[in-house]
Structures are given as C-alpha cells and as structure tokens.
Design a protein around this nucleic acid. Sequence first.
DNA 1: CGTAGAGAGATTGCATACAACCTGCCGTGT
DNA 2: ACACGGCAGGTTGTATGCAATCTCTCTACG
Lengths: 245, 245
Amino acid sequence: MSDHTPPREADNGHAADDAYRLIRDQILSGQRSAGAWLREGELAESIGVSRTPVREALRRLTAEGLVRHERNRGVQVQAWSIHDLDEIFSLRAVLEPWGCRLAATTGTIDVDALDALAHRMDEVAPDGRPTDVDELTELNNRFHRMILEASDNSRLAGVVSSVIQMPLVWRTFSRYSPDALRRSLVHHHELVAALAAPDPDWAESVMRSHVRAAWHSIRLRDGGDRASGPDLPDQVSATTGQPPL
Amino acid sequence: MSDHTPPREADNGHAADDAYRLIRDQILSGQRSAGAWLREGELAESIGVSRTPVREALRRLTAEGLVRHERNRGVQVQAWSIHDLDEIFSLRAVLEPWGCRLAATTGTIDVDALDALAHRMDEVAPDGRPTDVDELTELNNRFHRMILEASDNSRLAGVVSSVIQMPLVWRTFSRYSPDALRRSLVHHHELVAALAAPDPDWAESVMRSHVRAAWHSIRLRDGGDRASGPDLPDQVSATTGQPPL
DNA sequence: CGTAGAGAGATTGCATACAACCTGCCGTGT
DNA sequence: ACACGGCAGGTTGTATGCAATCTCTCTACG
C-alpha cells in the first residue's frame, strides 16, 4: 500500500515516542544485552527517524535507569547484579504491602476486575506452566498496578513501577519454577479476597508474603525444579532476542 | 572583558547541565510559579544556549515531575495541592524510617560527619530562628541524604530524593515555627545518637517521629506562632522571586 | 621491545532551519 | 446574534550540519 515503506517497526505517529517504546522493548526483552552500547546513529537508522528523537528517547530511558549515560561517550544498557535485585525487592517488600494496605483502607478498588485478572493468569499458566510468558507478565503487571493505583497515592505507584523496570525483574516469571508460579497465583486470589473483605492487615500481610516469595523464586529457583544453567549473572541470550523460558 | 557577554548566569561548561540546573533552581526557589509556561525559546535566550540543550533539560525536569509536558503545547511548572503534600510525606514516613533502620544495621555511616551537620544546623538556626534558610535547607538535605546513602540501597536514596523535589517540600523550613524548628533540630541530634549506638529500632522510631512532625509543621504551622496568611495553596509570590520566609 | 604521541575515524553535543501543530482572531454566512 | 471556517502568529517537533570530544591505531623514539 504505502510506497516509501518505513524500515518496518511499529509507527505510532510520533517519532520520539516510537523510538522510546522500541528501544525500551528491545532492552526489556533482552535483545540489547547489558553493557551493550546504544549508538544514536544506528538506532536512528533502524527506527527510521533522525537522531533528535532518538536522543530524547535515550534521555528518558536514562532517567528511568534502564540505560547509563556517559558524556561524550554514549549510553549503554544498564548492567545489574544480584545486589540490584536485592535492592529492588527489599524496596518492593516495603512499598507494595503498604500500598496494598492503603488500597484495602480506601476501598476504591475494583475487586471484580482484579479477580478477572487473577483468573486470566490461571488460564495462561495452567498447572504452573505458562503458555505465554509475555501475556502472563503483562497480566501480572496490571494486577500489581491496579492495586497500587487504588492506594490513592500516585507517587507510590510511580515509584514502584520505575523501580521494577529491569529486564530480570520485568520478566520475573521466566525464572519461576512451576511450584513457585502456582504459589504466586494462589497469592493473587488471596489478595483479591483480602481486598474484598476488606481487611487491611490481611491484605498487607499477603502482599508481603507474595513479594518475598517472588524474591526467593527469582534469586535461587527455590522450586528445586530442573536446575539448569548457572545461577544469575547469565541474564538472557543476546542473540536469539528472546530470553530463555 | 568579554565582548559578547553571555547573559550572565553561572556557566559550568556544559550547556545542557547548566540549563537543567538553572531552570530547576528557578522552579524550586519559586521564581517560576506553578502553572507558568516554560517557553523553550525564552529559556534558551535567557540562558544563552540554543533550544536543544533546553529541551533536554526540560525532559529531565519532566521525568522528575517538576514540570508537566503536553505535546505540541509545551511544559508548565507542575502545580501541587495539599494532596500532593500528603502523598509525599506519607511516602517519606514509610521510606525514611526504614532507610534509617537499615543505616543503623549496616553501621557504615559516618557518625561524626552526621553530627557535624547537626551542629552546623544549630548554628544556622539559633533558637529556632534561621539566619539563612537556603543554608539550612542545604544542610538538612545533606543530613537526610547521608543517612539514606548509608542504607546500602541506592534506589531508596534515589526514590526519596526524587519525591521531595517540590518547591514546598524543598524549602520546608520556610513554614516552620521556631518551636517546630527547634524540635526538628533536636530530632537530628537524637538520630545521631541512635545511629551511633547503633540501635535500629531507636533510629527508625526517631526518624518516623521526625518525618511526621515535619508533615504537621508544614501543613498547619503547628507551633501556633504568628498565623499569618491563608493556609496552603498560596505557594510563593511569583513576583519577588523569593518565597516568604 | 616497550611506550609516548600524533592523527584519523567515529560518536556525541550543540546550533540552526524547516515542518507540523495549536491557538486565537476575524470575517462570512445563516 | 451566533456559529463555522480559514488565516496568521507563535510554539513545539524533527532533521541536518558542524564543532568538540573520545578512542584506537600506527609510528617514532628511548
């Protein structure tokens, strides 16, 4: 149909936004591995825009901590260590339970919608074995976001989502054992119950368990399932473009 | 000496950084009042650089929440309400005590340096009446930052400092009564003692008191001192360029 | 043989020109 | 009198050119 065929890639209509989304997705999905340099020129050409919107996208990603910017040298994908993981989850273990308590207190949450999300996650991961990790990740993020947005503290939601923007955390379920994943889904249903009650103490407590369980699952594959590969710093394979499931 | 006289304003050597600092200071000091539009062209001319670094500075400020960006319309200084204040302080009331506990646990804090800061604040504000609010603000920020940086969780420090970037919060002491300010300074000394002990429970508890006391001080001038002016949404006078002390 | 230095290539930082878009005003038609 | 449409001014979004900086390599000298 079109004659000038923009170098493929989803075109939303605004160059800077497109660049931001595309680069961000490439980082979160592991196509750009930690430490890799992001050249403005290369990105601009591959996206089909000039360097200006690319620079803007890279600044946003810098502010979000996904990439690291060195003056006159460029930006590279932020590398993370197990210490980063501990920082992130210890923060979540404080903020999410508190937000969950607030959500139960205000009582403004749409329990039915939350319950629907929990059930859809059951369907996507029958018996703890996900059929579509991306879908599951998306549903999980929406579940947690919905709770935090009901806390009536927009900064809390913003802070948490800014902190979990990291490939390993983002794709949490890649590292779950079936047992751990089943437990995670059960937690979700219990959270729905606690918020429906509503019982702030209960809700806070379940969320704390939920986050700390996730922490352990992602750290050391607690399920004892097939323990392949080395433990952590191996991240994703940079060639295939998709992280190992 | 120079013939082309850069329109004054501190020149650090890098246009984008200079623009960022200058605009940010103008917002935090109240020279740019809430809701005012920040025109790229005007800013570029006043700073003495082109629009490009100004745009970069504005994006950083957008990411930090100090300004609000509307596509094809520009950026305006973020307006805040008492609800924002509550969001910020309820978040601080969770995060800072926790960070203080962590700092006491790791025991990596430089207690002497912290004590020195507390004493310098006493000197700048004898008898609860500050002689230099800017100096006092700077010392206070360094005091709190030093504790959070000793928590061994860099994201925690980053999150807190990103959240307190707001004119009213930044210049907290402008709204303190002498009684409240004295109490705040006493808290600082007690924090030093708790961290020197070190007693995590004590440290956490004092910090919680400290933040919640600040919350009330800034909300309603709890000291009962000369209760002039309306209560909150009056922010700063946009004409004088300096907020009321 | 190793090291310091110069130079070329590549990349980012900044400035400027142009295009797209929004807003407010004015004129016209109903 | 009121509503619609278009035109003009101003502002942001994007592209492009040039300057500044960094890195890597090759060479010359100790």
